[in-house]
Design a protein around this nucleic acid. Sequence first.
DNA 1: TTTAGCACTCACTAAGACAGAGTGCTAACT
DNA 2: AGTTAGCACTCTGTCTTAGTGAGTGCTAAA
Lengths: 343, 343
Amino acid sequence: MELDQRSEQILTTIIEQYIQNAEPVGSRNLAKVVGVDLSAATIRNVMSDLTGLGLIHQLHTSAGRVPTDVGYRYYVDLIQKNNKSHASYSPKKFGDTKKAKSIEGILQTITEELVQTTNCTSVILSPQAGKSQFKKIDFIPLGQTQVLVVLVTQTGMVKNRILNLKHCPEPETLEKMAKLLQELFTKMTFSQIQEKLMGVLSSEDTGLTAQAIRLGKKAFNLDQENEDIYLSGESKLCSFPDFGLQGELAGIFQVLEEKSLISGFLHQATNGEGVQVAIGHENSVRELGHCSILAMGYGNAGIKLGSIGVIGPTRMNYPKVIKALDYSSQKLSFALSQFLDEY
Amino acid sequence: MELDQRSEQILTTIIEQYIQNAEPVGSRNLAKVVGVDLSAATIRNVMSDLTGLGLIHQLHTSAGRVPTDVGYRYYVDLIQKNNKSHASYSPKKFGDTKKAKSIEGILQTITEELVQTTNCTSVILSPQAGKSQFKKIDFIPLGQTQVLVVLVTQTGMVKNRILNLKHCPEPETLEKMAKLLQELFTKMTFSQIQEKLMGVLSSEDTGLTAQAIRLGKKAFNLDQENEDIYLSGESKLCSFPDFGLQGELAGIFQVLEEKSLISGFLHQATNGEGVQVAIGHENSVRELGHCSILAMGYGNAGIKLGSIGVIGPTRMNYPKVIKALDYSSQKLSFALSQFLDEY
DNA sequence: TTTAGCACTCACTAAGACAGAGTGCTAACT
DNA sequence: AGTTAGCACTCTGTCTTAGTGAGTGCTAAA
């Protein structure tokens, strides 16, 4: 859909006014806004056209116009088209990200910052183990039948899991096996490792290598199920008048608790280019019909590790949020790479 | 404060009616409730007394009565007095808690269950490392200047932290140091270990023991700051009509995000006996003026590890919640001990 | 001590009137 | 042909008024 420049300007002005005041905007008020030098009557004509195109609609005959999801979509596409001159922030701007002691700390700081600047709830898909590179494995015997597996990624994430075995090998054997797996898989991603391990048939061979591979199969089997999705700034969602009615908020929170429902979008954002946006009913979940989710991947140059996003009412300040997300994503990527460099 | 039996019955009936219907209860309706065989007029007299005592109050001259925080307090104390015949659940009732793979899994399952039965938000202070017993330490060298410390507690919790050193000792040295610390501290709680380590002066001695102790000081220094408090079922809070007005919900969520504000209460519950209750403005935080928090400690016979609680509107079903908490706490304690036994 | 009766208070609701904002249409203007 | 001014119309929100119902407190009788 293509609009002439004037219609486009009026549409964006309507949207921006509505975002600001949360009230339907009428032709007369619109005429008063600086930058719109047309009479109310002319504006009415244009508005009528826009309504016909489904970009805005009115609640009652004598009410002002409100943007539809389609309208927002047009608006956001416009922003992103004009925004192509992608701003790359110089590391200096990020301040001292060095202090961070852990990945979790970095994630938390950055999401809190994002919440603060966007005034929305923020969400993060934390670095996906599957996508990150293997750095180190270690086995710690805990008893007769249990071994603690410690996996470290190149990005400094540590994963623990306890394995139940029929019989726990000797410490020396464990150490040898760890070394073996280490040499075999260094710098590969966990997904690659899993694939490779799947390929090897499980023999009954009792040789050290065979034994190591059998153990490796268990150890590297990261459960995809419970993905690490964290929310922060939930309180922000409560402040918007947009979700006033009858437990709509409750529905939204239910969806957010059931994290699997937004995980799809976050994964898509991880792999996609730039900021991904889902507006209102574009969301696959009905409960989020009045929400928009924006997310953007982060990670080192080549490998995208996860994504960071923002959830708020459809009536949110898109330009601001998109900028903030872009910034946060770059900052996060930088902080992670710096964290990595220290190794 | 002591009430005669009739006043007490009327008070509890008022409270129970109010909890059920969320509407002020008047004398006439109260007279109709089964179990109250008095005329409305008599009830009015009693209500007048109760109002005088500050146990109930009325919003307007011609409105029914609503319990005050003091009234709820009386009610809850009564419940807990009658409840002294503390129910101990037989392990069989808990079903198969064996399947759980991790402590986190156990916590999550049980809190979700608690959310479901109480219809409130639930909160958990996860097993406090400081209070649990040390089982195993291991050092994994990550590079020239970094060592990953892995700490395992008797309860099966695993803690990781990365230490930055001027120079990372040789793997063999690290192993020896781990063995040394292991022997020194096995079965002590982390708090005890920290205390003990504090007592030892840091000498410049380059002997293995001295070196191990220096490393130990860093390794065992669990940061108390970021305590592990997890919420679940936040959506439940959104459904109550009790927090209708102007961002009260937002305030509550802000408090819950700033977990430190409820941590005090949870610690108190950890150490206290039975279910601890904070009603309405008894809470130290103003934002929770219309909320009640209930919590109860859990842990092995001797050692209390943490606490599990429930947050909801002041107008909540106390008897039900108290029972549910008692049950959940016992179930959790059992599941944890079982998890531990497997070692 | 309990109860019935009565007068009074006050919130909530419905109905009507009115103001305000907004629209669409038509005719005049550039 | 595009733009603007004017006008009639629609509809919501608010204000007022009146009426209803629930609830109370007080008094007097049982």
